[in-house]
Amino acid sequence: MDRLTSMSVFARVADLGSFTAAAKELRMSPTMIGKHIRFLEDRLGSQLINRSTRRQSLTELGRSYLDHCKHLLDEADAGDALVEEAMSAPRGKLRVATSVAFGSYSLAPALVRFMKRYPEVSVELILSDKMVDLLEEGLDAAIRVGTLTDSTMMSRALSPYTGLVCAAPSYLAERGTPAHPIELAGHECLRYPGWSDARRWTFLGPDGEVHVDVESRLTINNAFGIRYAALAGAGIVLMRDELLAEDIEAGRLKVLLPNYRTQARARQILWPRNRKMTPKLRALIDFIVETYG
């Protein structure tokens, strides 16, 4: 039997003065009430209640034990109330992982807005271009690019990443501006594994799908590094539009092949399937979908 439940039954018997009254209030049979009392007495090795045909009375030990029971029951009720309150509004710490570039230039500022909306929530943002294990690292959620293959994860789809082909004006002045994807084969193309591990770039345009095998003398595994290399005139870059938007607007990079679009890549927020959906996690998921959906 559950000791806390038995304590609760004992306290009601003591307050009401009889097994029958307690059974009626607690919607138990008098026999079950007696079993709870005997469970406690057997555990303690001493009698708590003097039984008679008309009324039950507490033994000396029973009176002392009653005070402790009521104290523990009050503490248990306070703990339940605390959990119930915590579950009713977003509060507590969230650990979230994503890539270095996206987390730095986009997610970090967005999380500032999230924390202003939910002032009792704190966030630890883990930035890594490696595929981290959410369960092993104790993470609540992660934002990733690509198709979800892990069955231990739940996910919500976000807007897909789209890529732009860009180059600095200094590079184009020196090497010329390609007018068709096939001309990229004769240019310096910067390779960023975080966008695609393949050396073949795929485009969709007026003449259908076009595949180009590009040469990459410079490969950098960090989005910021490849962006700065492009800004320095090292070559043509294919990267997600969000990271290049400010450079394009300022004229530091020029969009190439405007009549062709690159293949979009899926993006999603995911969290462990067995993780309880707390208010703070639900609030984060809804906010990310609202911001990037």
Rank of each mutant, 00 (worst) to 15 (best):
S64D: 07
D213S: 14
V123K: 05
V132K: 03
P258R: 07
L284D: 07
L244V: 12
M1Q: 06
A173G: 10
A108D: 11
N50Y: 14
V214D: 05
P206E: 09
R144H: 09
P206Q: 09
V210R: 08
R252V: 00
L256C: 08
G186S: 14
P109E: 10
S6N: 02
C69R: 00
E136M: 06
A157E: 13
M7F: 07
K24L: 10
D67I: 12
A232P: 02
L257Q: 09
M28T: 01
S52R: 10
T98Q: 00
G79P: 04
M153G: 07
T177V: 15
M87N: 14
G45E: 03
T31Y: 09
A234G: 07
T147V: 14
G103R: 01
E120C: 03
R38T: 11
I248G: 04
R252M: 06
C189H: 09
D15K: 13
G194Q: 03
A198K: 12
A78C: 08
C69H: 00
R51E: 07
Y161F: 15
G205F: 05
L164E: 10
R217L: 11
G45A: 04
I37K: 00
F114Y: 13
V255C: 06
L256S: 06
A108S: 14
S8D: 03
R113N: 13
I126R: 05
G176M: 14
K70Q: 07
L257D: 06
S6C: 04
A108K: 12
A110I: 13
L48T: 01
M115W: 03
I236P: 01
V145K: 08
A185V: 13
A185I: 12
G208K: 07
P272N: 10
A223Q: 04
E242H: 11
P181Y: 00
E41N: 02
L4A: 12
A168W: 02
V289P: 01
L40K: 03
S57Y: 05
A11Q: 06
S64M: 06
R252P: 01
A264V: 06
V96I: 14
F19N: 07
R267H: 05
G176Q: 14
A110N: 10
V145M: 11
L135K: 12
E183C: 11
T177W: 09
S18Q: 02
D241I: 04
T5V: 08
R217G: 15
M153C: 15
R3H: 05
Q263Y: 04
L135Q: 12
G235E: 02
C189Y: 07
L58D: 02
R175N: 14
L238R: 13
R55E: 13
G251N: 04
T98S: 02
L72H: 07
V132L: 13
L253K: 03
R175V: 14
G176D: 13
R144M: 11
A76C: 02
P109R: 09
G194M: 02
N222Y: 03
A23I: 00
A283G: 00
S6T: 00
